[in-house]
Each structure stands twice: as structure tokens, then as C-alpha cells.
């Protein structure tokens, strides 16, 4: 027993005995210092955060050609010339895709308002659905994706909206449940492939017929996978047509450094 023989703490008295009080103050101050030290150490040991940007609260105007397939997108002409376009994936607010807003409007020139989400290599617009208005009755033929080759790729399946900047992190296990919710709600899935020279490549995933992959893909989200399919390109987007049966889990071979 280390308490002084004469001192006894009773909580409903006005103050603690002086020796006890000094002892406790030293411990409490020590605990506060430890808490601050741990806060700094814990926050500094985190992985770096992804560079994506979600311009939350900033609504911009866009005008361009709607693309309905293989995933909803808007192609916007760049200032330098009509042949050069920027491709923006289109999604609805929350964890929902934009299919219902672009259905039957492939090739239509529209004006819309929305919030930008982007990271190097891919950009997206979170559409304000009520802002979508037609600018012309004419429809442009968007054509089909240009097939490149059959490939087998390793990477991680994520939902494009969170990965591009809405969530940080928008990948790995801690984000898995959110990615499942987003993909289930129609957000386009992408395969994130680590490039040996650094950075990542983002590839949109569709089924073999060019439509959305079904719910069976949800089992493979946010973990290392290998999948096979036909790689193609449309606008700025890489697209891999695959099938859940062509996806297999792989063990991570090295810790990622993204």
C-alpha cells in the first residue's frame, strides 16, 4: 500500500488530500502528454492519402454529347479543337449510377450541371439530375469501343466514384463495404492496376456483352484479383469486357505503396 497513511480520498468532499492531489495531477498531465504523442504518432504512420479530388459544394455547367454505353459518360469538346474531347463518367448523387438519366439518350447533345470528381487519368461528374436538358434533337453516333486485345490483368476492383476522390481511401478492405454499396447502386466498377513504373491505370469493367457486371462481382471487391477479358478503348477510357467466372482472387505479393 503506497497511499499515505493519513490521506483518504472521498469523492464527495470538496477537494482531494494534497499529496494524493499532486500524485494525480502528475499522472493526468503525463496521460495528456502521452495522448498528444500517440495522436501525432498514429496520424503520421498512416499511408499517404490518394490524390483524388471531390469538388464538394462546387457545381459547374457542362455541355457535351451523352454516351450511354458501356457506362454513362459525357464527352466534352476541348477548346483546342472539335476532334479532341474530354470524357467524364456520369453518376448520380449518393451511391447511385446515372443509367436511368441517360437511358435512350445516347449521342444526344445536352447541357447539365454537376460536381467534378477527378484524379490523374480519369474524371467524373456527379450529375444534378434535374439539370439535364437537351440542346439538340440530333444524335451523334458514338460508335463502339475499339477492341485492342485479350488480356489478363491483376489489380483491385473498386467503385469509380469513391476511388476517384469521394472517399479517401476509396480502396482496400476498410473501404470494401462502401464499394459494395456503390457498385450495387450502379456506380461503374473499375480495375485499378498498379504500374511497375509507379502510379495506377484505371480500367472500366463491363460484362462480355458490354453491359453492367452483375452482383456476383461484389464478392471480389477491394482485394487483389486477377481477371481476363477483352481490352478496348472508347474516348479516353480503357474498358475490359470480362465475366465474374474469369475473376480469381490472388494473394497480395507485396505491400502497396499508393
Amino acid at each position: 500500500m503506497k497511499a499515505t497513511q493519513s490521506e483518504f480520498f472521498v469523492g464527495y468532499q470538496h477537494s482531494a488530500p494534497p499529496t494524493l492531489g499532486r500524485f494525480l495531477i502528475r499522472w493526468v498531465v503525463g496521460l495528456l502528454v502521452v495522448a498528444i504523442g500517440l495522436a501525432v504518432a498514429l496520424v503520421m504512420a498512416q499511408r499517404p492519402f490518394d490524390p483524388g479530388v471531390f469538388e464538394y459544394g462546387v457545381v459547374r455547367d457542362f455541355e457535351g454529347i451523352l454516351r450511354e454505353h458501356p457506362v454513362p459518360a459525357l464527352e466534352v469538346a476541348r477548346p483546342e479543337g472539335a476532334e479532341s474531347v474530354s470524357s467524364y463518367l456520369l453518376v448520380a448523387p449518393g451511391k447511385h449510377g446515372a443509367e436511368e438519366w441517360v437511358a435512350g439518350r445516347n449521342g444526344e447533345r445536352v447541357r447539365l450541371r454537376g460536381t467534378l470528381i477527378y484524379r490523374p487519368g480519369m474524371a467524373m461528374i456527379e450529375l444534378l439530375p434535374d439539370s439535364l436538358e437537351s440542346r439538340s434533337d440530333a444524335r451523334r453516333d458514338n460508335g463502339a469501343p475499339q477492341a485492342i486485345s485479350d488480356v489478363t490483368l491483376s489489380g483491385e476492383i473498386v467503385d469509380s466514384k469513391c476511388y476517384l476522390g469521394v472517399m479517401k481511401p476509396g480502396r482496400r478492405k476498410s473501404h470494401r463495404a462502401c464499394a459494395v454499396r456503390c457498385l450495387s447502386g450502379g456506380i461503374p466498377p473499375i480495375l485499378v492496376v498498379e504500374i511497375a513504373t509507379g502510379g495506377q491505370e484505371q480500367i472500366l469493367l463491363v460484362d462480355r456483352a458490354g453491359g453492367p457486371l452483375g452482383p456476383s462481382i461484389l464478392d471480389y471487391v477491394a482485394e487483389p484479383v486477377r481477371l481476363s477479358g477483352r481490352l478496348s478503348q472508347q474516348g479516353e477510357h480503357w474498358i475490359l469486357a470480362t465475366d465474374p467466372s474469369d475473376i480469381e482472387r490472388i494473394l497480395p505479393v507485396a505491400k502497396e505503396g499508393s
Partner: peptide, 9 residues
Amino acid sequence: VQFHALGDT
């Protein structure tokens, strides 16, 4: 809210 709200479930 962050991971599960505003979805289909």
C-alpha cells in the same frame, strides 16, 4: 453515414 448511407440498402 460515410460508408453505408445514400445507397440502395
